[in-house]
Design a protein around this nucleic acid. Structure first.
Length: 639
RNA sequence: GCCGCCGUAGCUCAGUGGUAGAGCGCGCCCUUGGUAAGGGCGAGGUCGAAAGUUCGAUUCUUUCCGGCGGCACCA
């Protein structure tokens, strides 16, 4: 005789155990039709499952995130059913819902082909039409294991073995397809929405590279055809802003196999790079950092002392000279400790904020390389703050302020922080880790930033904060980091003299704001889709002539722009103005100044800004002045 | 590194067991045109590399290299 409490607080009494579908129907036929699953005291249940005791419920539809997730999970099952029908020798393994869709991992000798995907998708549509009822069954563990073994589904049998003994083994049946699954699921396959299979990929069983590789099929699934279309459109738009594509189109950089994972920066790209670096240098100077430069090639012994040789040897490029092994630095910290160790440091020297645009090399696995986002040679906006325990909190707070201000200047407003604590493989004693973790947490509390805990994700030498920014199309990128390190100062014997006249160990804070400049530029390119604000744009202004009669005046305009420190070019080609405007708009030049007889006559320019259809006639002085102010960028605004 | 797909002109791509094509771009010529492509002509490719099958391979097979998508890795 359950009393059912609805989300609005009202209560309905039922004489007998009642199913979600019956409750939905009692509220209204529209809801019964839209219902996918039911939330019972916060737990998602199948609509058909009888509710026997009092409960607070809500009906979940495809409008809820949870409903969409169930829909996607069901689409994964639908795909598995289609695959089993078409390729009965295939073993099914796991198939969860993921962001925007789902995947399912299969074990099969033959690889799936793109043509197979088409066939599977067609079969899935058929099964939706069949509208097979999806039913939940609880099986005894032994029977389930036996069943899957007999069916040749050895992965499923293995999964059951890993399910804790006190949990029910639930199977879901739809048509002739039975799958081990926790659920919940929709009432029938007919409720599944719009979907599309997107890609085939390899994936290791249980995510472990020692295990065999399975075939993963990815798909996307939505409540409606319209949502699916919108998603596919978003993907196309994202592709258009791919930094590798824009890098080529805007002639910013290239990569080639003779220097895999290392960037050839072209003049425009390098100008962008320098703009970012110059900006950062000024911000660091203003924030009390000292800049240094340390060797890129350092003897193995230093890497052994720092601990890197033991842990990261395979990821370091090495060379030999004079019968010594030298390694290209994968990071800057040991070098910075060497500078710290020169002379005797006093507590009065702390905090010492030592920055370097450090050129690092890491031997990344070939499969990991990805445009500018994952490279083997890169420059970090790296710095190490040598400080006392007591200074960790204020230094971290100052760092967070600096970082937020810099992200904002680059056009990123949304930032979160991950707090990552001790990983399984690490150096240093546990009590040292306790102190480090506590200090970081305490420091970050004062920043007001949203903090997420990611256990076990810390660096091998200390816990860290990871700063994640969100770009213009909602993607998250981890860029900034701040890591407490009690270990390296000890290993490399860094000391300072305290007020008491005794030697003490400084704490090191490893910190970066942009991370790898290469990667950050990749993110910036995608964030702005190549349409940079004027201060960042590598090509700022083009002066385009209407006819050759105006070449002389265009030269004057160009000289004025350049004198004002702007990057300006003249387009004197024998082309129509429409052609020039189109070409420079496509090239994403922020400002086009058209000049013809009228402009030459009145000392004016016709300014057209990127993305704006209308032109504006301005006095030359006014145009130069405006562009110059705008191009000065955020540094001019803050001082 | 692992699995799959792909590799034809600077770019985007078509095509064929008998040594190749389009559009854009590039060069020259005509056009001097007022805001997202004016017209004509032309140059440009050992079809990723090597080996094999074949009378003949860019096309079929194998291996390698690279790119892409995932997985694993990411101090």
């Amino acid at each position: 005789m359950p009393d059912i409490t609805l989300p609005d607080g009202s209560t309905r009494s039922f004489d007998n155990p009642v199913s979600g579908l019956e409750i939905a129907a009692s509220i209204g036929p529209g809801l019964a039709k839209a219902a996918l699953v039911i939330s019972v005291d916060g737990e998602l249940w199948d609509l058909s499952r009888p509710i026997e005791t009092d409960a607070a419920i809500s009906i979940v539809t495809a409008k809820d995130d949870a409903g969409l997730e169930v829909l996607r999970h069901d689409t994964a099952h639908l795909m598995a059913e289609a695959v089993k029908e078409l390729y009965p020798d295939t073993q099914v393994t796991i198939g969860p819902a993921i962001e925007n869709g789902f995947y399912y991992d299969f074990a099969r000798t033959e690889p799936f082909t793109p043509d197979d995907l088409v066939a599977i998708e067609a079969r899935m549509a058929e099964i939706v039409k069949r509208d097979e009822e999806i039913t939940r069954e609880v099986w005894p563990r032994e029977k389930a294991v036996e069943f899957f073994k007999q069916a040749g589904e050895h992965y499923k049998a293995e999964i059951i073995a890993g399910i804790p003994g006190d949990e029910d083994i639930t199977l879901y049946r739809q048509g002739d397809f039975i799958d081990l699954c926790r659920g919940p699921h929709l009432p029938s396959t007919g409720r599944i929405g719009a979907f599309k299979l997107t890609k085939i990929a390899g994936a290791y069983w249980r995510g472990n590279s020692d295990n065999e590789m399975l075939q993963r099929i990815y798909g996307t699934a939505w409540a409606t055809e319209k949502d699916l279309k919108a998603y596919l459109h978003r993907l196309e738009e994202a592709e258009k802003r791919d930094h590798r594509r824009l890098g080529r189109e805007m002639n910013l950089f290239h990569l080639q196999q003779e220097a895999m994972g290392m960037v050839f920066w072209h003049p425009h790209g390098w100008r962008l790079y320098r703009t970012v670096q110059t900006y950062m240098r000024q911000r660091l100077d203003a924030a009390g950092y000292v800049e240094v430069k340390t060797p890129e090639l350092i003897d193995r012994s230093l890497w052994e002392a720092s601990g890197h040789w033991e842990k990261f040897r395979e990821h370091m490029f090495t060379t030999e000279a004079e019968e010594r092994v030298l390694a290209l630095k994968p990071m800057n910290c040991p070098g910075h400790v060497q500078i710290f160790r020169q002379g005797i440091k006093s507590y009065r020297d702390l905090p010492l904020r030592m920055a370097e645009f450090g050129a690092c090399h890491r031997y990344e696995p070939s499969g990991a390389l990805h445009g500018l986002m994952r490279v083997r040679g890169f420059v970090q906006d790296d710095a190490h703050i040598f400080c006392t325990d007591d200074q960790i909190t204020p230094e971290t707070e100052d760092f967070c302020d600096l970082l937020m201000s810099i992200y904002r200047d680059f056009g990123f407003e949304q930032v979160r922080v991950n707090f990552a604590d001790r990983p399984a493989v690490r150096v240093g004693a546990d009590d040292v880790w306790d102190r480090a973790e506590e200090a970081l947490l305490e420091a970050v509390k004062g920043t007001g930033l949203e903090v997420q805990h990611t256990p076990g994700e810390g660096a091998f030498y200390g816990p860290k904060l990871e700063f994640v920014l969100r770009d213009a199309i909602g993607r998250d990128w981890q860029c900034g980091t701040l890591q407490v390190d009690f270990v390296l100062p000890e290993r490399l014997d860094a000391t300072y003299v305290g007020e008491d006249g005794e030697r003490h160990r400084p704490v090191m804070l490893h910190r970066a704001i942009l991370g790898s400049l290469e990667r950050f530029l990749g993110i910036l390119i995608e964030h702005y889709a190549g349409r940079f604000p004027l201060w960042l744009a590598p090509r700022q202004v083009v002066v385009a002539t209407i006819t050759a009669d105006s070449d002389g005046y265009a030269g004057e305009v160009l000289a004025r722009l350049r004198a004002a420190g702007l990057n300006a070019e003249a387009d004197l080609r024998n082309e129509k103005i429409g052609y020039k405007v189109r070409e420079h708009s496509v090239a994403k030049v922020p400002a086009i100044l058209a000049v013809g007889a009228r402009e030459a006559e009145g000392e004016t320019v016709a300014m057209r800004r990127l993305g704006v259809k209308e032109q504006e006639i301005l006095a030359l002085d006014e145009a130069v002045d405006r562009l110059q102010k705008e191009a000065a960028g955020p540094l001019a605004r803050t001082t």
